[in-house]
Design a protein around this nucleic acid. Structure first.
Lengths: 216, 216, 216, 216
DNA sequence: CATGAATGAGGGTTCATTCAT
DNA sequence: TATGAATGAACCCTCATTCAT
């Protein structure tokens, strides 16, 4: 790791640094590709873009999911971290909340894999970053008490985030920024001047897993 | 040398009962499976569940997409129709809007394939039913003029629908009805007592198709 | 099964005629389609064009090959018969030969299935008609003794027929009648003024069935 | 299976040559199988014979047609090249022509896929090798001016080649070399001592694409 | 008997993962 | 160790043939 590599390969002393560099290249390429195409990408595409062979990729990440996990851990963490910082810097509680969504939707909601994963695990975070996003929101929520309509929970704000994130994805390139309007609407709906209580959520139940029969 | 048959061959194909039953079984199984798993399902799974062989399935639906299309056409149409009826019956414009979302999210938003397709084509409907949903919303929108905040468009309401539909999907079985709260929030945000104008959307542009690099 | 059918189906007296009519329709449609597309056609296409169901088709012809056989028997027979008649009518032996090829190539060589089958069984006829074609050629050959170069056999003339038939097929619609030139050339080459003996053919051997290794 | 290994193949040690060997094995097996059975072969059969898995085959040749194309390109090219060389070496123009046919029919006409493709594209070559075969014939044709009967074109000679190639195929293993007699006949018919003009070919027309109805 | 629906063994192709070099 | 070739199960789809109505 700390050893210099004389360019014409003595080779004896390059293992860790090399491996690290490879690993980073893989993660970087994967991040790119996962953001663009979601988790459905062909692993080969990642190998290709990172310039390493499949073997190397699989040495570092024995399962595709391992790589995805790693990338998303990093991306979620960066997101959480920048969100945390922004939250700290913001002075107005309401602006902090607003800015959070703005930043999230502008910056991260286009990341297909992030949104895929977020949708799957927002309620049961399997990644540190997701948990921390929740913490950030929790704090934003706490700070905005009195400004937020009563009863609004962190989960509400998280679900809203995923929901609007989806709007960002589907407006994509052809309806850019239309999600902004939805954001505005939702944020206004979150304001304290709405004092009707939100509907209560039943405790988590086990539903018949196949309830799609449309209603009569 | 088979040529055009003179008009006195009504050619009344007796829609064989068992074929119809099979077709229905296929469509039903497909609807079930598509609702559960989305369009990525294995065609064999549909055949299996409907109790027919691959050949039968492909006799009725020469391409997988044909089956998907058929199922979605039906489901979207039923949705649109029931939405239309509900819209007509509702007396209060606001209640009509509210009920529309309630019904949609309760009844249809769990259908994975419906939501997949809706997300893809909400802005450019390829199914009659989708178009009619838009029409229903258009009318709800028109009727609610004065109650809706100024500037809200049909597209806003549609995007909101897809967005909340996604929330329904991800709350799934374990957080039932939590989306209800989001709905309430959004609807409140749509009320006319919010008079700040919504952000303008730029006209549809061609963006660099690969904008996913998350911000620093 | 033996029960009389109610009023407006006399039916009692039509069974064989009906079956016959169906059979004929099948054969006719099959002839058409086999001529157009060769034996690779989908059986459904034949059923469709003949206006009968698959079951009927398979009742008359339990295997696709049975139908093909039947059609080709008929077509080869017609061919043989018309060739025979023409041979009889022709006064000049050489003209008889010439006309035979002309007629064959103009009239039958476009029939894909005929040519397919002819290519497979010209030397070992499995159809009466093929055998009779051979007989016709045999006679033409005999009558043209003295005009044909010495040593020319019926098999030569048959092989030439298949060979030119193939030329007809591949010139198809875009190079119509070019095969005519080949025919002329071949016929000239068959004339008695060529007195060099033709190369002897070894007796039929069993070759290694896979001799495709191209020579160095 | 895989043959033709240059003598001292360590077998256990094949760094990258391994892939090449596999590729070659695939091509070789494909050539074999395509020669035997034509382009209708099952890709799995090729994989089996070459001793590789489907994935390997598709790694090297993403579409079946790519493999077919590769094999045919190679085979046609070898053919064209050897024909070209033979044409150059031959001193007598007529012998050159004769030898060309002899070699072609002896060496390549048994290759089913080659003949299939040749029949389809002789008039409109899609492979370099086919085009070069045409060039060789063109030159043979030019050199034989004065020996060839007037009016004979390159296209005539090409069509003759395909036509006789078909004869080779159908004589197959059981009537070996009988095509030789046809060749002799045709070549004699091509000689200049025949001075009757060949029938003119109409310019390429668009025919009713379905003219197969055999005559009464 | 006629009908046409049903069957299911392939056929071409893809991709996560393993393995030889 | 890095490489990228190899693997093979799984996917969508076709068609000769059988079978229920």
């Amino acid at each position: 790791m700390a050893v210099a590599e004389p360019e014409n390969t003595p080779r004896r002393r390059a293992p860790r640094a090399d491996a690290m560099r490879n690993r980073d290249a893989i993660v970087e390429a994967a991040a790119e590709v996962l953001a663009e195409q979601g988790t459905a990408v062909d692993v080969r595409e990642i190998a290709r873009r990172s310039g390493v062979g499949m073997g190397t990729l699989y040495r570092h990440f024995p399962k595709k999911e391992d790589l995805v996990h790693t990338v998303l851990r990093k991306d979620f963490s960066e997101w959480a971290e920048s969100a945390r910082r922004a939250a700290i810097e913001a002075e107005e509680p309401w602006a902090a909340l607003t800015d959070f969504y703005q930043q999230a939707l502008t910056g991260y909601a286009r990341h297909r894999a992030i949104m895929e994963r977020f949708a799957l695990t927002w309620a049961d975070p399997d990644l540190e970053g997701i948990h921390q996003l929740r913490l950030v929101i929790e704090e934003l929520c706490a700070r905005a008490t009195g400004l937020l309509r009563p009863g609004v929970t962190t989960d509400d704000l998280l679900l809203l985030l995923v929901s609007l994130g989806h709007a960002v994805q589907i407006t994509g390139e052809c309806r850019p920024l239309m999600w902004n309007r939805l954001l505005r609407i939702s944020l206004d709906g979150l304001r304290a001047d709405h004092d009707e209580p939100l509907p209560a959520t039943p405790a988590p139940t086990t539903h018949p897993p196949n309830p799609q029969q449309p209603p009569r």
